[in-house]
């Protein structure tokens, strides 16, 4: 009987992972294939394999759809994992990079640099990382130092977020030309993103994801609470700081090319936790895949829904994410403490 149960859970595991990988790959393929200009799958393949590098179709694929799809997948994966890490470290299911001011911290740093030193724009990912780090350390420090309740930490995060947002608005009001596509930046979007712009952020994201995955055991133990984690021999302080730095790197790198994209970091980890519930490694990996899938699909919707007009993807994300967040809030109030 029990061996049967193991078998069936293993089988459902395989179905889950296969399905998730298929969905993510499918979303990537759709992202390359679909858009306001109709292309044949063969044209897309030719462009990607380099057999055709000059036609209009190839240019659309290589210089518009490929960077966009890559950007959507990277941003989705980075923000979702950043959210999962922050939720684990703060031991708070309501936390996410956009809620506690990590994204707006990164955005403020970017806006400030763009307004004050336009020539330093290639350092954007690093600058955004710095801003995100400031945001995450502020909130984590506050919650640690004061032993504040979970709700208080969220409220503090909202306040810090509002402050950074005001900073962004000040910067873009005083120097209107600082950021091209301000709306996209404020709401989150991928219009006009290039591979050259993506490369440094992608590097930061891949390295951070690798380190986060390798720390999954420590995150499992951290999730047991500080006292238990320490009595198991984990050095809680350094591990927490390392994870927060990684969360900031992930969110900052994403914000540097896609702007203030909300809700991915909240929805995706929660959905995955509900679907899987096996531990941190599976949570992090599935969040990365699920985030990539979700943002790519939302970006697709943003491009196609009102074609030839385009919505910033953040709008679609918010329409999908806000109801979920509300549901989570009320469930939290009625459910466990």
């Amino acid at each position: 009987m029990s061996s049967l149960r193991i078998f069936s859970t293993r089988r459902s595991d395989i179905i889950f992972w296969a399905g998730l990988c298929a969905l993510t790959l499918g979303a990537a393929a759709l992202g390359l294939w679909t858009g306001s200009v109709k292309l044949e799958p063969a044209q897309v393949l030719d462009a990607l394999t380099g057999r055709d590098g000059t036609s209009a179709a190839a240019r659309i694929v290589l210089y518009s759809r490929l960077p966009r799809t890559c950007a959507a997948m990277l941003a989705g994966a980075a923000l979702a994992v950043s959210g999962a890490v922050i939720q684990t470290v703060l031991d708070n299911p309501l936390a996410s990079p956009s809620v506690i001011g990590v994204n707006s911290g990164a955005g403020f740093a970017v806006a400030l640099v763009c307004a004050a030193a336009p020539l330093a724009q290639r350092y954007t990912p690093l600058v955004a990382f710095g801003g995100a780090l400031a945001g995450v350390l502020l909130v984590a420090g506050l919650s640690q130092r004061t032993g504040a309740s979970r709700m208080t930490v969220i409220l503090a995060g909202v306040a810090i977020s509002a402050m950074f947002s005001a900073g962004i608005d000040t910067a873009v009001t005083l120097v209107p030309d600082a950021i091209s596509g301000v709306t996209d930046f404020r709401i989150g979007g991928f219009t006009g993103v290039t591979m050259a712009q993506l490369a440094p952020a992608a590097g930061l994201i891949f390295v951070s994801l690798g380190i986060v995955f390798s720390l999954s055991q420590q995150m499992d133990i951290l999730a047991l609470g500080s006292d238990t984690a320490q009595s198991l021999g984990l050095s809680v302080g350094p591990v927490r700081i390392t994870l927060l730095v990684l969360a900031a790197a992930l969110a900052g790198a994403a914000v540097s090319f896609c702007g203030l994209m909300g809700f991915v970091g909240l929805i995706v980890p929660h959905t995955m936790r509900r679907l899987l519930g096996k531990g941190s490694l599976s949570l992090m990996v599935s969040s990365a895949l699920g985030g990539a899938f979700f943002v790519t699909m939302c970006d697709l919707a943003a491009r196609v829904l009102f074609s030839p007009f385009e919505l910033p993807v953040g709008i679609i994300l918010a329409f999908a994410g806000a109801p979920f967040f509300l549901w989570l809030l009320f469930k939290q109030r009625g459910g466990r403490t």
Binding site: D91, D220, I221, A223, L224, G225, T228, L232, G277, K278
Partner: peptide, 20 residues
């Protein structure tokens, strides 16, 4: 400990962390 978190993790996996 007296107060304990409710982690989302398989029970055996959690007990294994006693070997950490």
């Amino acid at each position: 400990t007296q107060s304990r978190n409710t982690p989302s993790i398989q029970a055996l996996r959690m007990v294994l962390h006693g070997r950490f």
